[in-house]
């Protein structure tokens, strides 16, 4: 198991290098002279040339990339063009909000999706199942930025239950978490239902019933434990989706997270921050996926013995 984790961590290195290369290349060939962006359009030509030299912007592409990677490994991913502060620090300041938002989104989606999926599967084609499936499909189809606005309209403007912006008090977190979590909840509901339907037909469920086990335990223990494996995969993938979706949610609810930072930076052509943000989220996502794969081993002993 340890060996497996170590191997997976090592495999992350080239992937991250690749992500860096892709993002670095995109930013590198984007029109716009970073020195001019930093100094402003009206800066004298001499100063721009001086800054270009300082930043090494005239070096060949690969040299610049190598330097970026070399520094990144030491935790230095450049300075923000607009504030001149280290990008890593700017991102780290904002990252907790984004992570909290994504985690709350997962919480919402799991706590809504798994129970609904189980009930739907055990009462296939019932009224509950039909309603849940239509609701789930609507949930998948609803653009979350629109849903966020509608929630604000209803719960902040009309009912005045929850504030429409900010992210420091629990009541400020309710609407963003719902906005971010709904479509994932819908996807997890659908996955749980189909996975449970598959498992419920298995012979070992009949064995459990033949033991005289209560139906609730047959479903929640025997069936769910087996159905969880594909569900966990989806939750892991959804986490990545939520990290991306946080960009939109953060800008709807004015949450000071990495996503909003990135959007602002794109508009200001502040490339080091954009680059750093993508890299940061990609690393987080990769770690979550690794965690999911490790989690498999605890859920499914067959996979555990493969890891050895």
């Amino acid at each position: 198991m340890h060996k497996y984790i170590l191997r997976r961590l090592l495999m992350l290195v080239p992937v991250m290098l690749g992500v860096t290369l892709i993002v670095f290349t995109m930013m590198h060939f984007t029109p716009g002279d970073p020195a001019k962006i930093m100094l402003g359009e009206s800066a004298p030509e001499a100063e721009v040339i001086k800054l270009r030299e300082e930043l090494g912007l005239d070096d060949p592409f690969l040299v610049q990339f190598g330097r970026y990677v070399f520094n990144a490994v030491q935790g230095d991913i450049g300075r923000s063009y607009t504030t001149n502060r280290p990008v890593a620090i700017e991102i780290m300041e904002r990252f907790p909000s984004t992570l909290k938002l994504a985690a709350l989104g997962v919480l919402v989606s799991v706590s809504l999706g798994i129970p609904t999926g189980i009930i739907s599967a055990t009462r296939q084609y019932s009224l509950f199942d039909n309603i849940a499936m239509v609701a789930a499909l609507l949930g998948v189809s609803m653009p979350n930025f629109w849903q966020g606005l509608m929630l604000i309209l209803f719960f902040s403007v009309q009912l005045k239950w929850f504030p429409s912006s900010g992210f420091s008090t629990p009541s400020q977190m309710v609407l963003p978490a719902l906005t971010l979590g709904t479509s994932s909840a819908a996807i997890i509901t659908r996955m749980t239902r189909s996975s449970m339907l598959e498992v419920i037909r298995q012979d070992y469920i009949r064995t459990a019933r033949a033991k005289g086990q209560a139906e609730s335990i047959v479903i929640n223990k025997h069936a769910l434990n087996n159905a969880l494996i594909p569900i966990i995969t989806v939750i892991g993938l959804q986490f990545g989706y939520l990290l991306g979706g946080a960009v939109l949610t953060e800008s709807i609810f004015s949450i000071p997270g990495v996503g909003r930072l990135m959007v602002e930076s794109i508009k200001a052509r502040n490339f080091p921050v954009v680059q750093g943000g993508v890299l940061f989220i990609a690393i987080t996502f990769s770690f979550v996926n690794l965690l999911v794969d490790i989690l498999y081993a605890f859920v499914d002993p067959r996979i555990k013995s493969q890891y050895k």
């Binding site: 991250m16 992500v19 930013m27 990135m262």
Partner: peptide, 24 residues
């Protein structure tokens, strides 16, 4: 497939955002 893995490591919408920010 390694190239695909790399693309997969970036959440889709984020990848789109960075491409748009480069292309305009």
């Amino acid at each position: 497939m390694r190239f695909v893995d790399i693309l997969l490591a970036i959440p889709g919408i984020l990848l789109a955002i960075s491409i748009v920010s480069a292309l305009g």
